[in-house]
Amino acid sequence: MTAILRSPTTIVGVMIVAILAIGASASPNFLNASYLLQQLQISSFLGVVALGALGVIVLGQIDLSVPWTMTSSAIAATSVVGVGAAAQDVWSTELAMPIGLAVGAFIGLVNGIGVALLRVPAMIWTLGINAVVLGLCIFITGGFAPPGEASPLMRSLAVGRTLGLPNALYVWIGISLVAAFLLTRTYIGRAIVAIGNGERAAYLSGVATQGVVILVFVFAGLCSALGGLLLAGYANQAYQTMGDPYLLPVIAAIVIGGTSIQGGSGSVTGMLLGVVFVTLLTSVLSVLQMPDPHRQIIYGAVILITLLLYGRFTRPVN
């Protein structure tokens, strides 16, 4: 019983309730079903990206290329639509999403090769890749997003609704289920956790560690790309700074969910709650009409206090 009370998942659940109470007292519309559904819809973009980042963090690595993986796949997808519209070609609009996802997977592949084969620390390699992708996009586009818009599929996934619930939420839940299954029930999941605990031991136990690391980075690239495509569908355009506000909240959501940044353990459920918490925190601060500097301070303080609580009161996941 105490183990359940002391798990990060419980603590973050309590904090979500607390933040809903604060929001409700500040604005009567806060607990409105449509407002909350909209928050979940926005959470989905962050949540999809965080799923990929979770795998990388369980490996004991980190992916700092999230911002420009998101942005470059969104730019690629919207310009495919733009080109198709110019040529009055219906097929190219259908190609937008696969091409955007392929861009993300390719960036993930390069990340994985650098980390697994060249053995450059992920912190610095993915940072360099982020800079190169940024440079490539600026070089190719000349500093402006090329003309284009989101494809109908992207728009429908990002803003459409089915049975009253946002489609983005289905996407998020679907990928979360797949990720949770992979991480906890399959060989590859156990291999990821094993590598996070000690790559040497995992290698000696017969795990093809380099292949697994590359695979996880490709999955992270795909997730970041999907997040970028959903965001582009939501805004109906791609823009240069769209990925920047996602890097730190992704890491915050994962560690608030109880996953150790050192790797070797991870909780998908905790992370889902962490994503909801981070989104609600941002939303409450804007409902309270807090000026931006104060928002940053509260945001940082809340993360710090949460982690202090974890350090004192919880046992690690697994």
């Binding site: 104060h294 301070i297 940082g300 303080a301 982690l307």
Partner: peptide, 9 residues
């Protein structure tokens, strides 16, 4: 990461 947000604010 967290203290950085505070100092930036």
């Amino acid at each position: 990461l967290a203290t950085g947000a505070i100092y930036t604010g």
